[in-house]
C-alpha cells in the first residue's frame, strides 16, 4: 500500500529535477525547472490565483453553509429535515462533468439566470456569469456545501441544549445567544468544514477547466497542460508545489482546529 502511494511520488520527485527543451525530455539532474518555477512571476500569479480561488470558495461555502447547517439543526420535523439534507447532499450524486455542463447552461448569456435579470430590468445586457472566476466559484461552492454543512451540523447537535436555556434565562435574546454561545461552540465544526473545502478547492481541476474559460489559471490546470505537452519536469514541479501547499494548508487548519476546540 505504501509502495503504491510512495512509488509514484518518488518518480514524480525524480522528474522534477529534469528539464524539457524543444520538445525533448533531458534526463539530466538540474534545478533549472525549479528555479524557473520559483522565480518566475508568472507562476507566482498562478499560485496566487489558486490560493485566491480556494479562499473565495471556502468563504462563500461557509457563508451559505452555516445558515443551512443551522436550519437543519433547528428543524423539528424529521421529514423536512431529511429532504433538506438530501437537497444539500445532491450535488455529490452527480458527476462533475454533468454538473459543470448544468452550470454552463444555467449561467450562459442565453441561460435562465440572465433571462431573469434582463426580464426584471436588473441589467441591460447579459452578465458574464460563466467561463470566468465567478462561474468556477459558484460551481465549486455548490459541490462543497455538503462537506461544509455536515461538520457544522454535527458540532451543533453536540451542543448541550441547556446552554441555550441558560443564556435565555440570563437575559440573552436569540441573536446574543447565537453570537456568544452557539457560534463560538460550533467553531470546531466550522474549521473542519473550511479545511475540507479549502484543500478540495486547491486540487479542483475539472471545474476550472470546464467553467474557467481559460481565465482561471490554477495550479492543477498548469500541471495538466504540462502533462499533455509531455513536459513532465514542469508537471512534476507543479505537482510538488501543489503537494507542499496542500500540506501547509492542512497543518495550518489543524492548528486552527486545536485553538477553536480549546476555547
Amino acid at each position: 500500500m505504501t509502495y503504491a502511494f510512495a512509488a509514484p511520488l518518488i518518480t514524480f520527485f525524480e522528474y522534477s529535477f529534469y528539464r524539457f527543451r524543444r520538445g525533448r525530455l533531458e534526463q539530466v539532474f538540474t534545478l533549472d525547472t525549479y528555479s524557473r518555477f520559483l522565480f518566475d512571476s508568472y507562476y507566482h500569479v498562478v499560485i496566487y490565483d489558486t490560493l485566491r480561488m480556494a479562499t473565495i470558495v471556502t468563504l462563500l461555502s461557509l457563508a451559505i453553509g452555516y445558515p443551512l447547517a443551522y436550519a437543519l439543526y433547528r428543524i423539528n420535523r424529521p421529514a423536512i429535515q431529511r429532504w433538506l439534507a438530501l437537497l444539500i447532499f445532491s450535488p455529490i450524486l452527480v458527476s462533475v462533468v454533468v454538473r459543470s455542463y448544468g452550470w454552463i447552461v444555467l449561467l450562459s448569456d442565453q441561460g435562465p439566470v440572465n433571462w431573469l435579470l434582463l426580464r426584471f430590468g436588473v441589467l441591460a445586457e447579459p452578465a458574464t456569469l460563466v467561463f470566468n472566476l465567478f462561474g468556477v466559484v459558484i460551481s465549486l461552492t455548490h459541490v462543497f456545501l455538503p462537506f461544509v454543512v455536515f461538520p457544522i451540523f454535527s458540532s451543533l447537535t453536540r451542543l448541550d441544549p441547556a446552554l441555550k436555556e441558560a443564556a435565555e434565562d440570563l437575559g440573552a435574546n436569540w441573536w446574543t445567544t447565537f453570537r456568544r454561545v452557539t457560534f463560538p461552540l460550533s467553531l470546531p465544526g466550522v474549521v473542519a468544514g473550511a479545511q475540507i473545502a479549502f484543500t478540495l478547492a486547491l486540487g479542483a481541476f475539472v471545474t476550472p477547466a470546464m467553467l474557467g474559460g481559460g481565465r482561471v489559471l490554477v495550479l492543477p490546470l498548469q500541471v495538466y497542460n504540462a502533462t499533455t505537452d509531455i513536459n513532465w519536469p514542469v508537471a512534476a514541479v507543479g505537482g510538488m508545489a501543489l503537494l507542499v501547499i496542500s500540506m501547509v494548508a492542512v497543518a495550518a487548519f489543524n492548528r486552527l482546529l486545536k485553538y477553536s476546540e480549546a476555547r
Binding site: A162, L163, A166, E168, L170, A172, N173, R180, L185, R263
Partner: peptide, 27 residues
C-alpha cells in the same frame, strides 16, 4: 424567560464551557 425577574440554576449547571468562571458570571 429573558424578561422575567427570575433566574435559574440548572441541574447539570449549564456553564458555558468556552468561558472562564468570571466570564460565565458576567454573562
Amino acid at each position: 424567560p429573558y424578561r422575567r425577574p427570575t433566574n435559574m440554576v440548572f441541574q447539570r449547571w449549564a456553564l458555558f464551557p468556552h468561558m472562564t468562571a468570571a466570564e460565565n458570571v458576567a454573562f
